[in-house]
């Protein structure tokens, strides 16, 4: 397939016409097609116009709103991840205590709760986790510097 352009193609596409160019177009299939298509495309473009476009101020406002929303969503991601981690840690600790004390599931829950309330290291872990979550939330949700 011959896909190379003709040297006159750019002029034909711009809609330029003079005697020499007309003579060339009549003998060059490539330029004839380019001329026909470009005239048709220009006609199509003229027929394509929007009704009412939004005001630029409205788009600026929407863009700021969307940025704020995505920044908040991004900032909340680590907080959510830490919450999930805290819950998983809680479950894992409960399961570990239940397994350690050799209890079945029902009493194990009661036992776990008892152990948790009595267990100083786990309490420390919980408080530390909570503090970390608060610190992360405060860091990521702070107002950006202007």
């Amino acid at each position: 397939m011959k896909t190379e352009g003709c040297e006159y193609e750019a002029r034909v596409m711009r809609g330029e016409r003079d005697k020499a160019l007309e003579a060339h177009i009549s003998g060059c299939e490539h330029c004839r097609e380019a001329g026909r298509v470009s005239a048709w495309m220009r006609g199509l473009a003229e027929q394509t116009s929007p009704g009412n476009l939004p005001a630029p101020g409205f788009l600026l406002f929407k863009a700021r709103l969307s940025k704020k929303y995505s920044d908040t969503a991004r900032a909340l991601l680590p907080v959510a991840a830490m919450q999930v981690a805290a819950v998983l840690l809680f479950i894992a600790a409960g399961a570990w205590l239940a397994a350690k004390s050799g209890l079945s599931v029902g009493p194990a829950v009661v036992g776990t709760l008892r152990s948790l309330s009595a267990s100083a290291p786990l309490l420390f872990l919980g408080v530390t986790g909570g503090l970390l979550i608060c610190a992360a939330a405060a860091y990521f949700l702070r107002e950006p510097k202007k």
């Binding site: 929007p50 476009l53 939004p54 788009l59 600026l60 929407k62 863009a63 969307s66 995505s70």
Partner: peptide, 11 residues
């Protein structure tokens, strides 16, 4: 598409 294009462009 027009609105979304300019919002992405601005951000």
């Amino acid at each position: 598409i027009l609105q979304e294009t300019y919002i992405r462009f601005l951000n």
